[in-house]
Amino acid sequence: MDELKVKLRGMRKQFQNQNQRPPIEFVTGRVKPVASIKEKMTRRHVSEERLEQDMQDIAGLRIMCQFVEDIYQVVDLLRKRSDMTILEERDYIHNEKPSGYRSYHIVIEYPVQMVTGEKRILAEVQVRTLAMNFWATIEHSLNYKYQGAFPEELSARLQRAAEAAFKLDTEMSEIREEIQEAQHLFSYGKAPTERTDDESKKDDQR
């Protein structure tokens, strides 16, 4: 987990070193607690012998992005890496879960070099916006309180909140595009004006 966090944070640093806006806002990670592993083994009927193969999220990474389009840029970057293998992808952004949950999930296989030799582990990478993460954090907390059995009214409110969060993401992306377009037009229109001013000065000098 520590290795993967360093590598993913390094991707952000590379963009910054090149004076580019990084698609990664920040990276977090966790190893699932033993109690949670045992509970999931029972719930999903996972045998101890198949634990490492069948439970994909013992190691979990979360990559936070500012915009929805950043998510897909990060996914493309991960696909190009040679130090990990992508085994599975699940797009819950444009194919959200019934609860309203949105995120992009990637299951990777990562080789860890140990003193006893190489060990290939599975890890789940979740890539989402800050708005998606805010909703998911609240929903996760409520899930513990209600043990997954939300009252109907609360489920409906969570779905509406998830839709509102996604509309916010969409609106911010559109605003960003308008700003970029305005900056491009401003830069395009500014250069000829400056040349004209220079020419005017030369004429005055003459």
Rank of each mutant, 00 (worst) to 15 (best):
R43H: 06
K201I: 02
E69L: 11
N95K: 04
E171Y: 11
F166R: 09
I121C: 01
G117P: 09
E177S: 15
Q14M: 15
V115K: 13
E152G: 11
V46Y: 06
K190C: 02
L51R: 02
A191H: 06
M41P: 06
Y104M: 05
Y101K: 07
F67D: 06
L158S: 00
R120V: 09
F67K: 01
E174L: 03
R30A: 08
L51K: 02
A149R: 11
T196Q: 06
L122T: 05
F26N: 15
E194M: 04
G117T: 03
S173T: 07
K167M: 06
V125Q: 00
Q113M: 14
Y72M: 11
R43I: 07
G100C: 10
D91T: 10
E49R: 05
Q183G: 06
H140G: 03
E25D: 15
K167H: 06
A149N: 11
Y110A: 10
R44K: 05
L8I: 15
V27I: 14
E177D: 15
R44L: 05
E48P: 03
Q18H: 13
T193N: 01
M114P: 00
V74S: 13
F134H: 04
D91Q: 09
A191I: 01
R79W: 09
L130N: 07
N95H: 08
E3L: 09
R21S: 14
L122C: 03
A165E: 05
D197A: 04
Y104F: 14
Q159C: 05
S173A: 11
P151M: 02
Q180S: 14
D91V: 04
K97Q: 13
G29D: 12
L154Q: 00
H94G: 04
K202S: 10
K40F: 03
H184I: 11
